[in-house]
Nucleic acid binder design. Sequence first.
RNA 1: GCCCCGAUAGUGUAGUGGCCUAUCAUCCGAGUCUGUCGAGCUCGGGACACGGGUUCAAAUCCCGUUCGGGGCGCCA
Length: 425
Amino acid sequence: MRILIGEVKNHIDTEVEISGWTQNIRIMSTVLFIELRDVSGTVQGVLLKKGNEELFETLKALPRESVLSMTGQAVKSQAKIGYEVQIKHLDILNRAETPLPLGVVDKIESDIETRLENRFLDLRRPEKLSIFKIQSTISNSIRNFFVNSGFIEIHSPKIVAAATEGGTELFPVKYFEKNAYLSQSPQLYKEMMMSAGFDKVFEVAPAFRAEEHNTPRHINEFTSIDMEMSFVSDEGVMDVLENVVKTAYKAVADRNERELEILGVPRPNLDYKFKRITYSEYVRMANQKGIAMNDGEDLSTQVLKTVGGGIKEFYFITRWPRELKPFYVQPYDEKYSRGFDLQFGELEITSGAQRVHSPEVLINNLRSKGLNPDSFSFYVNTFKYGMPPHAGWAIGLERLTMVLLDIVNIRETTLFPRDRTRVTP
RNA sequence: GCCCCGAUAGUGUAGUGGCCUAUCAUCCGAGUCUGUCGAGCUCGGGACACGGGUUCAAAUCCCGUUCGGGGCGCCA
């Protein structure tokens, strides 16, 4: 029975069967070593030429990254990891073509373009695999957090009829005789679930944005972790968000020791309270740093880098001007709203808000943003027959992974990124 | 959408008008080597993105195209 390579150390002095990719073959005159890799690690197999001449010659000509299965005695040895497998039997399951479009264990790091074109090979590198093992821990721990806190997991439609928030560009889809779009966010649907009485919901799903951005922190399809709660304020969901992020960090610290080590990332630790900085304070901080801007203007990349770049931790920016936030954000007063962002340094991780629950305010807001309430009737109607006060947020899974692992390009934390020019692979 | 930059073997690079029949590493192939672990050593293989132009001479300069990278904007 096949065991994982990472388990071999627990089977010393017994016969084991392992399978994987031949990452390197070292040939001596009388002995050769095969470095075999699977999802759990690598180990070397040893084969003496004497008595195995035919297999020895076959393996000498075996290309790197071929797939094979071997059985043999696991023994302690002078190998660097302290043990190895003495090959008794070996099956070549699939030969790799040569040359490889991308060397998996080459010392040189290829361009990101080459890597993404050959992503399956790129992902064979333990450090790339580690990113996604950690991302799995993040999304699983967040999902568990929600389930354990009484949230209902929902699956809202990704083909929608109208722009959900206005503003952003959407990808059009032909929907038989109608025009439809790929969903930019489950925003309207998760709010509707509040009117439906679900009380607390969450969703982990893709979001699509047709913006032609060329930056290392935007892609056109990303994974949005959304939540919405009833009878709660903006402050209340900020508390939940802080808990969620801390839960995810702790889960990674507990479960991904090996992956963190492979990536050279210190054990994540968030033993501080996330600061809550109002938008207006943020503007004053920018002014103090010599950036001329007025209260009411959006925070530019320059401002976020200058002010936020020095804050290497999570913090909230709260009370955004109503002008800068979508129609569904609850006003705080005449000028400001109950909308907030969670930032890490200069990078926005989350945006959230207490939402409008009064139908009158909602309709006014829609009009003042130049949107026609009639085209949102499916949504506006849910406010007319008993919409509770509610609040929620959405966190970008890829961005959270970037921050946790100190990675600067979102393409690195996306399996197959959809960016301005890439639709394949 | 705007601005800047780039494209040389499978991969990553050197190259600044003639010394380029193009460097180095890796890779691939052949050989050698008594256990390696970035194995070592010897020999061999493989490239100037595409189209035009300038020049006696272009990888090198100019124009265009395509593709890519970075910054900004928009957005999250």
